[in-house]
Amino acid sequence: MGIAAEAIKDFKGFNLKNMPEVEPLSSGHRACQGCGEILALRQAMKALGTNVVVCSATGCMEIVTSPFPQTAWNVPWIHVAFENTSAVVSGVEAAYKAMNRKGKINQPDVTFLAYGGDGSTADIGIQALSGALERGHNFIYICLDNEAYMNTGIQRSSSTPWGASTTTSPAGKYSKGQSTWKKNMPAIAVAHEIPYVATASPAYPVDLMNKVKKASMIPGPAYLHFYSPCPTGWRCGGDESVAVARLAVQSKVFPLYEVIDGQYVLSRKVAKPKPISEYFKMQRRFRHLTETDVQMIQERIDAEYAELLKKCGVEA
């Protein structure tokens, strides 16, 4: 049995009936109405509880939770810069390790969490993240993927999907919007051969929380990639954040899986996938796409999903 499998073998899991009441992230934050990113973060924090140190990258989740003199954090939290949260958490973790060993503190069970947006994770901070994963610090990294730089006004990132119109990949006469395919961040994390990688969605809170909890039980680095709907940037209804997140899973756009000790495990098989057009229809960032474009994207999504099923050893 691998390190991760061993650590989680007795894990029981949450359910809607026994939700922890704790809210390490408090009300009064300034996220937009219906923000799916803060919802995902809230669910993650409920799973982690309060014996945690949180390191934040610059981005929406930093701005909306910490305008001085108010903090939405009930747990210790630090923000330093945009691209370095993986390095900051490395330092925090190393400090705890050294101070525990030297008898300066007696806090061996603290969990260390770093989070950043997709821009912070897949673009500017990928070096620091790679370094921290490779060095094997005992921490959880959460990428809150809302598929653009939202904090600075909806600019494209390498995690923006093909065809999405953003303020730096605008659709126009000579442009279909984003002209590159979404970077596969979880696969990059997997390539570091860390014990645990998983994708999760706030539309499936129990699954999300279970994955966060498992990540905290597993020694060494864990990388979690959260689908994080942004009604402001995607131009969909604020009430539809959870619906669009669910549809992303049901249309195979954002499959849910774990990679435990390098083994891919599908979290839920999409039996009757919805067409991607349905998913696109909810969001005005895709509304310029033609039927041919959508067909082309559908084929790519189908192929990627088939590839994933293969990795998971699941029959198509």
């Binding site: 630090i78 390095a87 900051v88 490395s90 190393a94 300066k104 620091a128």
Partner: peptide, 21 residues
């Protein structure tokens, strides 16, 4: 911590010092 850059060196130092080391 054998970091991957000086940018991360100082970032680690901030994390570490903020944690009390």
């Amino acid at each position: 911590i054998p970091v991957e850059s000086e940018h991360s060196a100082m970032s680690c130092c901030i994390g570490s010092s903020a944690a009390g080391a």
